[in-house]
Simulated assay, not measured.
Amino acid sequence: MSSFFAFLHHVAAFALVAALSVEFVLIKGDLTAASARKVRLADLALGASASTLLVVGFLRVFFFEKGASYYFHSVPFIAKLSLFVLLALVSIYPTIVFQSWEKALKQGRVPSVDPRKLRAIRTVIHLELVGVVLIMLFAALMAHGVGYLG
């Protein structure tokens, strides 16, 4: 069962990176009604994969793997979890903007977006991508026992 949850955790992580990459590519160019719809779908996939990653990750921490006592004495784990939560909070802004496009898209129009908002969204997506790389670093450190305080 532990292997199955490890598999689910990895699938969710790869899905998260894929969804974030799709958002990155689509928001980079000129916004069209079609690309706006795709961005919204990618953001939905991002949210679903992040939720799955968090739930499965906590199941692994508390019921499978090495146990909560081990993980909560690991500096890289705490850093990884903290960064994940921070990125989740930062990602609320793009999601709210993407959701605000619904009315225009239902009318077949391109959503009107202030260029400053688009720059801010691009910045958030860049930060999320950097954050994912750092999370992978923390995961590797954690897996090798670096920073364990027990």
Rank of each mutant, 00 (worst) to 15 (best):
M1N: 08
M1I: 06
S2R: 13
S2A: 15
S3D: 15
F4K: 06
F5S: 11
F5H: 10
F7K: 01
L8Q: 02
H9L: 02
H9G: 03
H10A: 01
A12P: 09
A13P: 02
L16R: 01
L16V: 00
A19K: 05
L20R: 00
L20E: 02
L20F: 07
S21A: 13
V22S: 05
E23F: 03
E23S: 05
F24N: 14
F24I: 11
F24H: 14
I27F: 10
G29D: 08
G29N: 06
D30M: 14
A33L: 09
S35K: 10
R37F: 12
R37A: 15
K38M: 15
K38H: 13
R40A: 14
L41P: 07
L41N: 14
A42S: 12
L44Q: 10
L44V: 10
A45S: 06
L46M: 13
G47L: 03
A48M: 12
A48Q: 04
A48H: 02
S49N: 12
S49L: 06
S49M: 08
L53T: 03
L54P: 02
V55E: 01
F62T: 10
F63K: 15
F63N: 15
E65Y: 04
G67M: 14
A68P: 00
Y70L: 03
Y71Q: 02
F72M: 09
F77Q: 02
I78T: 07
K80S: 05
K80T: 06
S82F: 04
L87K: 00
A88Y: 00
A88R: 01
V90A: 13
I92K: 02
P94D: 04
T95I: 00
V97Q: 12
F98P: 07
F98K: 07
Q99V: 10
Q99K: 14
S100Y: 06
E102I: 12
E102L: 13
E102D: 12
K106V: 11
G108H: 14
V110K: 11
V110C: 05
V113Q: 12
V113Y: 12
V113L: 14
D114V: 09
P115H: 07
P115L: 09
K117M: 12
K117C: 09
K117F: 13
K117L: 13
L118A: 04
A120F: 14
I121K: 02
I121A: 00
R122G: 08
V124H: 10
I125F: 00
H126G: 12
H126R: 15
L127A: 07
E128P: 08
V130M: 12
V130R: 07
V132C: 07
V132Q: 09
V133Q: 06
I135G: 03
L137G: 10
F138R: 04
F138N: 03
A140Y: 10
A140T: 08
L141G: 09
L141H: 08
M142C: 04
H144F: 15
G145P: 08
G145Y: 05
G147Q: 09
Y148G: 03
Y148S: 07
Y148T: 07
L149F: 11
